[in-house]
């Protein structure tokens, strides 16, 4: 078992290199980039400047641009003068030393930028996961026990609506109804402007949750359907299982047979899911973060792609790839813990 997990951990290395090399190469070949952006900025500045004062800067009509020499300097600065694989190697060496480079947009270390956002996404992710488990497991349990009852049908309607509507649409609806029309909740942000003035930790926590209410609902709406049905179906299967009948034939009351025997087996598929959730959850959903103006990792990744801020793109990728890979192994560990039949070799 231990051997298996050591092997899995070692396998992270080639997988990680595979993922990052792919994205690194793509960033090289897609049109646009920090240099193009800089050129565009200079042109824009020149056009505005030219229109205002009629003062010609360097070269002819049509606005200023950077000359060859400057571009070459920039290329050298960003490492674009070297072949792709060479600069990938340089990047990788730095990553191994926990140096993710410097953002081309903010001109500050990528790691600092990510570190600022990570707790925000992690807060939403972990809270969503907890709420989802707290809703899905009991709900799935009740639905399985009262299969085909009114309660089962009514809750299925809600679950399917939650499943069918994309979570960002749920987010927009919540925002329009509860923040804009009813004004019960703030429009967005992670906490209020007066956060630092709040007296106690409790008030600060309350403020965070006050701001988090709507986005959390949007997150949960998207994720609890699958989990609920997974729980329900697994439990239904296990309720019909022979060993539950054996337990009842031993003289165990039905309820006890469910909680002691059927539930334990039903948690196996849920445990399989656990590790995968971690990465998705901590990575955040950039759409929801965008709608609610939350400065999380998802939004950061999205904006850095739009702005061609490649060091950040790669930085976010590094974090999410590692989370995904570790999450997979975590899934395996969870499965091995709950199911004694699982033997990893």
């Amino acid at each position: 078992m231990t051997q298996y997990f050591i092997r899995r951990l070692l396998l992270i290395v080639p997988t990680f290199i595979g993922i990052t090399i792919l994205v690194f190469v793509i960033t090289r070949f897609v049109p646009g980039g920090p240099i193009e952006r800089m050129i565009a900025e200079v042109q824009q500045a020149a056009m505005q400047g030219g229109a205002g004062t009629m003062q010609s800067t360097t070269s002819g009509i049509g606005g200023a641009t950077l000359d060859e020499d400057q571009i070459r300097q920039l290329e050298q600065y960003y490492g674009f003068d070297k072949p792709v694989l060479v600069s990938y190697w340089d990047w990788l060496i730095k990553v191994v030393q926990f140096d993710l480079g410097v953002s081309t947009r903010y001109s500050e270390p990528v790691w600092d930028t990510i570190r600022e956002r990570l707790p925000v996404s992690a807060f939403y992710g972990i809270t969503t996961m907890l709420i989802t488990y707290f809703i899905s497991i009991p709900l799935g349990y009740l639905k399985a026990i009262r299969h085909n009852s009114h309660f089962d049908h009514a809750s299925s309607v809600v679950v399917f609506i939650g499943y069918a509507i994309p979570s960002y649409v749920v987010g927009i609806i919540l925002l329009v109804v509860f923040a804009s029309n009813l004004e019960w909740f703030p429009m967005g942000g992670f906490y209020g402007d007066d956060f630092d003035d709040l007296e106690s930790k409790w008030e600060q926590a309350a403020d965070v949750f006050y701001h988090a209410a709507l986005p959390l609902m949007a997150y949960v709406a998207g994720s609890f359907a699958v989990m609920t049905f997974m729980m329900k179906n697994a439990l239904m299967d296990n309720l019909a299982a022979d060993y539950v009948r054996t337990a009842i034939a031993k003289g165990m009351p039905f309820r006890e047979a469910i909680t002691r025997h059927a539930m334990r087996n039903s948690l196996i598929p849920i445990a399989t899911h656990f590790g995968n959730n971690i990465s998705v959850i901590i990575g955040g959903s950039f759409l929801i973060e965008k709608i609610f103006n939350i400065d999380g990792l998802g939004l950061l990744g999205y904006e850095s792609i739009v702005e061609r801020d490649y060091p950040i793109v790669m930085g976010v990728l590094v974090i999410s790839a590692i989370l995904q890979l570790v999450g997979n192994i975590l899934s395996d560990i969870c499965v091995a813990v709950v199911d004694p039949r699982v033997q990893f070799r």
Partner: peptide, 9 residues
């Protein structure tokens, strides 16, 4: 094969 619960000793 199935009358015993697979996850308990």
């Amino acid at each position: 094969m199935t009358a015993l619960n697979p996850v308990y000793r």
